[in-house]
């Protein structure tokens, strides 16, 4: 569904047309799920937060401005759902169980298999670094790089200025690029052991006062194969 059609659907829903909701759900659920997964590091939790987001969108539908854009509006509500969850987690200080086990390792036989394995490891490295970044940098980077929002839209979602968004995203980008360059430099044979080196650098980041979302594993409602390699817990702000 293209953006004007999506905005028109939200406009109808804001005016009380319940038939527009399935269209919105269909168009936005995957995007919001991906966004929340990147934010919190767990597909299971992101699924719950996505449902929460749609409920909040329903409650706040009357505030959707006539002729407005639904994507940044929905992302802002999703972010609020994530923040409220993170704060509640911090206050409850709940005991956590190991998170989703992650995807099965790809078949490494053959050249294609090797490329897939490298790509998978790179993605996991990015995920680990993202979850170790301060939440403000992580969310700015995610909105610009993965969700494709403009700097102005991202600033509106985050409740900050465009300059702050660019600076935060740049710092996140620097950290990620450094991690990827380190990964490339590391010879293949050391990659297995190198993962423990990366974990130590993550811990060093924690000592400096960073608030990694992956610091504690998270209670998982389901375990199964085929889930993406996404781990970690919510991060409070």
């Amino acid at each position: 569904m293209d953006e004007p059609a999506l905005n028109a659907a939200m406009d109808r829903y804001a005016c009380g047309d319940a038939r527009a909701f399935p269209e919105l759900h269909r168009a936005l659920s995957a995007r919001l799920l991906a966004y929340l997964t990147r934010m919190c590091g767990s597909e299971t939790l992101a699924g719950d937060l996505t449902q929460e987001t749609f409920l909040r969108m329903h409650r706040a539908r009357s505030t959707f401005a006539r002729g407005g854009a639904v994507a940044p509006w929905a992302y802002a509500i999703a972010r609020n759902a994530y923040l409220d969850h993170a704060r509640a987690q911090k206050h409850r200080n709940t005991e956590r169980l190991p998170s989703d086990p992650g995807a099965e390792p790809p078949d490494a036989h053959g050249a294609d298999g090797e490329a897939v394995a490298i790509a998978s490891e790179t993605a996991r490295a990015v995920e680990r670094v993202l979850l170790c970044l301060p939440a403000s940098q992580r969310e700015a980077f995610i909105l610009l790089r993965y969700e494709g929002l403009s700097v102005q839209d991202a600033a509106a979602v985050l409740g900050t200025t465009a300059t702050a968004v660019k600076l935060r995203a740049f710092r996140a980008y620097e950290a990620l690029r450094a991690a990827l360059e380190e990964l490339k430099r590391r010879p293949e044979a050391e990659r297995g052991a190198g993962r423990s080196v990366e974990n130590r650098s993550v811990e060093k980041g924690m000592e400096k006062g960073d608030r990694p979302a992956a610091a504690r594993p998270e209670r998982s409602g389901r375990r199964g194969k085929g889930q993406a390699g996404v781990r970690g817990g919510a991060d409070g702000e």
């Binding site: 799920l33 993605a123 995920e127 990827l180 993406a228 996404v230």
Partner: peptide, 8 residues
């Protein structure tokens, strides 16, 4: 920078 949640 690759996307860790590209599958989603």
């Amino acid at each position: 920078i690759p996307d860790p949640a590209a599958h989603l």
